[in-house]
């Protein structure tokens, strides 16, 4: 870290007049020999002044009326609350359902097309002369497993997105300060 970088850590304290005299003197001495830091400080000061002078805006004339309506008509949720999760939860839910359905049919087709293995001669399963296709490994999976797991996954997603708190914003802020 250069001297300049180190001294820049004190710029705010200097601006706010909170820097101890010795450090203040050190910084001012540095400004005399470092035009870059001097210029940076000058610009920060101007930016700070400009931000203080930014025009103030006011609420619309019917602000309080709108607030009253929101308070006394709780069934009307504000746009702010409704909009956030609509954008991504619905497509995610839709995709999950489509994926679950496709997966369900793939697994079912796979198990229904496989040749019947002779139950009495299990040694044939391990014959090196008949290389297994990657999909054929699923033969050993009990056919009931995917039929149970796939709909469960989709219903979990569905119930997650329909939970009442999925459209709520975290109340921590309210609670944190209140409990201080």
């Amino acid at each position: 870290m250069t001297d300049c970088d180190k001294l820049k850590e004190n710029f705010s304290d200097y601006l706010d007049g909170e820097l101890p005299i010795e450090q203040r003197k050190q910084l001012e001495d540095h400004f005399n020999i470092c035009p870059d830091c001097h210029e940076t400080m000058r610009q920060i000061r101007i930016i700070q002044q400009s931000m203080k002078q930014l025009p103030q805006i006011s609420t619309t004339p019917n602000f309080e009326q709108k607030l009253q309506q929101q308070i006394f008509q709780p069934h009307q949720k504000s746009n702010f609350i409704l909009s956030p999760f609509q954008n991504w939860k619905i497509p995610v839910m839709g995709s999950a359902i489509v994926l679950a359905t496709v997966g369900f049919f793939l697994v079912f087709n796979d198990s229904s097309n496989k040749p019947e293995l002779p139950v009495t001669n299990p040694v044939e399963n391990y014959s090196p002369a008949a290389p297994q296709l990657p999909g054929s490994q699923k033969v050993n999976v009990p056919s009931s497993t995917p039929a149970i797991s796939t709909p469960y996954q989709s219903s979990t997603l569905m119930s997650d997105s329909l939970r009442s708190d999925s459209t709520q914003i975290d109340k921590k802020g309210v609670l944190q300060v209140g409990n201080k």
Partner: peptide, 10 residues
């Protein structure tokens, strides 16, 4: 403005 409304509602 929506956020300020929501703030007061809370």
């Amino acid at each position: 403005e929506d956020i300020v409304q929501e703030t007061f509602l809370r």
